[in-house]
Design a protein around this nucleic acid. Structure first.
Length: 416
RNA sequence: GCGAGCGUGGCCAAGUGGUCAAGGCGCCUGGCUGUGGCCCAGGAGAUCACGGGUUCGAAUCCCGUCGCUCGCCCCA
């Protein structure tokens, strides 16, 4: 028997309420902030991600779904959302729109990883990007949007972490200081961290091994080595966030795994942060457009993992509204009444009433049981008597009462 | 890529060498020839993940494979 591929999942009807819930909240907020929706293809030229995400990153090195298509072009299933949006910005000349351009999206994201709780090979993100304005007030707005989305979903035991990792001017110097610091403790580092020392020094900061973690306490902090411009940006941002009354915490160990981030980075995490715990992550990417052969254009954005949001909604017991379902089931008695039942159901729907037609192949008792099992509040019963009289029997399943009405009267009562 | 645990009908699950499989949920039917929820009775549905081995005999022991889950790396 075929199964869904590893790390993928079918979304069955009983799960849909979570998706609709998150989507509706996210869309409402995004629109409130002036964002427009953008949808980009599921796959792109592989080069787009290699150049933006970075050749040394895990995503590019071992996690991309890359293949040759029949025209022998190298194609990659989108491993993240920001680069395609930036590509679309450039391709459609959005620099001719009033700046900045605010865009949001929902999309599937693919990474070849070992699945575990909160991590999948295909997962889904809601993301928002503001392109074309480097002012820290934009950072503040984007962070506020992310935070308010979490709150509006009903998530409470969460924290907002921010940091600044500098830009092309100041980060190289900082990274050198960091390397120098950790090199002094080379013998105390775990095997992974010895690798990081040369490959990705920033990641030394958030190693979970106790010895390494302890070393991180006294490690040089990026915010202490910012250039003047980055420093000003960082201070203004914090001031704005305070004015917006956002409960942020500065986390000097917060770094992000994609190469394109500059200056501001931020995450939202559950307080009981475990393994795959980050539910929202983002940051500024002022150099990204140039890497994609565009004019220098600043940008900032974030993405949240839908599956992780749902995981947290369930863990914290947030009540999510049920999907709407029909209020009526149309039952019929006897073969003669079946065409009439079909017609009744059709007329009810044209009158904007939800109706499930029971096929009539089973007994009335069976149809009533079906209505009960489906939690349907009303059953419209039509049999030979009703067909003859032009009526319909309406049973109220919760009150266990029933009345027979003229068909026209019943249909009129449905409204719409 | 590394490490750990697990794999019995759609779901949950008993059974740990000797009637090839209990029970519960769910589904269908009947008890009530046109009426639900409770109850009662019945039914459908399992090559016990797959392959090999040990044994007179395996769901049950051994080996391999596959799959799932959890963790590491990394990330949403």
């Amino acid at each position: 028997m075929y199964r869904a591929p590893r790390g993928t999942a079918d979304r069955l009807p009983d799960r849909q309420k979570y998706w609709r819930y998150i989507e509706s909240k996210a869309v409402a907020l995004a629109q409130q902030y002036g964002f427009g929706r953008v949808d980009t293809p599921v796959f792109e030229d592989s080069g787009l991600f290699v150049r933006s995400v970075g050749e040394g990153t895990d995503i590019v090195e071992k996690e991309m779904y890359t293949f040759q298509d029949r025209g022998s072009d190298s194609i990659t299933l989108r491993p993240e959302g920001t680069a395609p949006v930036c590509r679309a910005y450039l391709e459609h000349g959005m620099h001719n729109l009033p700046q900045p351009v605010r865009l949001y999206y929902f999309c599937p994201v693919f990474r070849y990883e070992r699945p575990q709780a909160g991590r999948f090979r295909q997962h889904h993100q809601f993301g928002a990007e503001v392109i074309g304005d480097a002012d820290p007030s934009v950072d503040a707005e984007v962070i506020e949007l992310a935070w308010r989305l979490m709150l509006s979903l009903g998530l409470r035991d969460i924290q907002l972490l921010i940091n600044s990792i500098g830009d092309q001017q100041c980060r190289p110097g900082y990274v050198e200081r960091l390397k120098a610091y950790y090199t002094g403790y080379h013998d105390q580092l775990c095997a992974d961290c010895r690798q990081r020392l040369t490959r990705n020094p920033l990641r030394l900061l958030d190693c979970k091994v106790e010895a390494c973690h302890a070393l991180g306490q006294a490690a040089p902090r990026s915010v202490d080595h910012l250039c003047a411009e980055c420093q000003a940006h960082w201070e203004q941002l914090q001031g704005y966030l305070k004015h917006m009354e956002l409960p942020f915490q500065v986390d000097h160990r917060l770094v992000r795994g994609l190469d394109y981030y500059t200056r501001t980075v931020f995450e939202v995490q559950p307080l009981d942060a475990g393994g795959q715990s980050t539910i929202c992550g983002g940051g500024r990417y002022d150099a990204l457009m140039e890497q994609l052969d565009g004019r220098p254009t600043p940008g900032i954005g974030f993405a949240t993992g839908m599956e992780r949001l749902i995981l947290n909604l369930e863990r914290s017991g947030v009540a999510v509204p049920e999907e709407p379902s029909p209020r009526y089931l149309v039952a019929s008695v006897g073969d003669g009444a079946r065409p009439a039942a079909l017609e009744l159901a059709s007329r009810m729907r044209r009158a904007s009433a939800g109706a499930i037609l029971s096929s009539g192949a089973r007994t009335l008792r069976g149809q009533m049981r079906q209505a009960n099992a489906l939690n349907i509040p009303f059953v419209a019963i039509i049999g030979d008597d009703e067909v003859r009289d032009g009526t319909v029997a309406i049973r109220d399943m919760t009150a266990s009462t029933q009345q027979t009405l003229p068909l026209a009267e019943f249909l009129a009562s449905l409204g719409g």
